[in-house]
C-alpha cells in the first residue's frame, strides 16, 4: 500500500467548495528525508493541498497516509502533534508575541504541565520551561534571529517574520515540515538565507514539503517536484524532468515559460 521510505502519501484527493473543484484526484508521495516541491500557477490548488494535509481543510474524498496512518479529516491541532508542522504564507501569525514567546509556544506539543503546575510554576512546569527555553535558543541560533528574541512580531520586517515562522516550525521538532511560500516577498539575500535554512533542515533529517513560486530555488532545492494546475496533478518528477515537460511549460504560458526553458 505504502512504498518503502514513503512518509507522506496522498491518494485520489478530492476537495470541492460548492461547484468549484479545488483538488481533483490528486496523488502524491513524499519520501523520508526528501525535499519535495509543489509548484503551479496561482489558484492551482497548492495551498489547498497543504491545508488538506495539515487538517485545515477536509477533503470529501481520498486518503492521506502519514506513516501508514490515514490522517485525512483529523483536526489541525492533532496533525501538528503527530509531527507535521507547517508555516503560513503570511508570516504575521502572532503580532503581539516576541520571537522568543512564539518559539516557546512552539514547544506546546512537547510539554504537558497542567493548569495547577502553571499557576504555581513549580516542578514540571518549571522544568519544562527551562527545557523549552533551551530548545527555543537552539532554534534562534539555527535561524540566526538572536537579535529578534525580545521583539514583537509586529515590529519586525517581513523577512524577519518569515525567519521567525521557519524557526517556529522547526522548534516543534517535526518529522515533516511544510513550508508555504517561504521566499515570497523576499529579496535575493534573504532568499539565500532561507535556502540555506532549508538545506540545513534537510541535513538534520527532516522531510520537507515546499510550495514556492521561485522556480530557480525550487530547481536548486528539490529532489522531486509536483506540478498542479486547476486542481489536478499534471506532472511529477525530478527537477530536470519537470523542466523539460511539455505540459508544465503549457501551464505556465507567459512569464514563466522563458524562465523554465532558460534552466
Amino acid at each position: 500500500m505504502i512504498e518503502e521510505n514513503d512518509i507522506l502519501v496522498g491518494k485520489d484527493i478530492h476537495l470541492g467548495f460548492g461547484g468549484i473543484k479545488a483538488l481533483d484526484g490528486v496523488d502524491f508521495s513524499v519520501k523520508q528525508g526528501q525535499i519535495v516541491s509543489i509548484i503551479g500557477p496561482n489558484g492551482a490548488g497548492k495551498t489547498c493541498l497543504i491545508n488538506s494535509i495539515t487538517g485545515y481543510y477536509h477533503p470529501q474524498h481520498g486518503r492521506i497516509l502519514y506513516h501508514d496512518k490515514d490522517i485525512l479529516g483529523q483536526k489541525a491541532h492533532r496533525i501538528a502533534s503527530l509531527g507535521i508542522s507547517r508555516t503560513f504564507q503570511d508570516p504575521t501569525t502572532y503580532p503581539s508575541m516576541t520571537a522568543l514567546d512564539i518559539l516557546m509556544a512552539g514547544r506546546y506539543i512537547h510539554t504537558s504541565a497542567s493548569i495547577l503546575h502553571a499557576m504555581l510554576f513549580f516542578g514540571k512546569s518549571r522544568r519544562e520551561e527551562v527545557e523549552s527555553r533551551r530548545m527555543a535558543e537552539e532554534a534562534i541560533s539555527f535561524a540566526h534571529i538572536e537579535d529578534l528574541r525580545k521583539i514583537p512580531l509586529a515590529a519586525m520586517s517581513y523577512g524577519q517574520r518569515k525567519q521567525v515562522e521557519i524557526a517556529r516550525a522547526l522548534v516543534m521538532q517535526p518529522e515533516v515540515i511544510i513550508l508555504d511560500e517561504p521566499m515570497s516577498g523576499l529579496d535575493d539575500s534573504m532568499k539565500e538565507i532561507v535556502t540555506d535554512l532549508i538545506f540545513d533542515m534537510h541535513d538534520r533529517g527532516m522531510t520537507i514539503l515546499l510550495i514556492e513560486h521561485d522556480i530557480q530555488a525550487v530547481m536548486e532545492l528539490s529532489h522531486s517536484v509536483i506540478v498542479l494546475d486547476y486542481g489536478k496533478k499534471i506532472a511529477e518528477g525530478t527537477p530536470e524532468q519537470i523542466a523539460g515537460n511539455e505540459l508544465v511549460t503549457q501551464a505556465y504560458l507567459g512569464g514563466w515559460t522563458s524562465n523554465l526553458s532558460s534552466l
Binding site: T54, G55, Y56, K75, A76, H77, A80, S85, R86, F88, T93, Y94, P95, S96, M97, D101, M104, A105, R107, Y108, T111, A113, I115, H117, A118, F121, S125, E128, E129, S132
Partner: peptide, 19 residues
C-alpha cells in the same frame, strides 16, 4: 507558562494557533 502562551496565541491568531 505554556498555557499563557497558548492563550495569547489563540488571541493573536486562532487559525495559526492550531498548527
Amino acid at each position: 507558562s505554556r498555557i499563557g502562551r497558548a492563550f495569547i496565541a489563540i488571541r493573536d491568531n486562532h487559525i495559526a494557533a492550531q498548527s
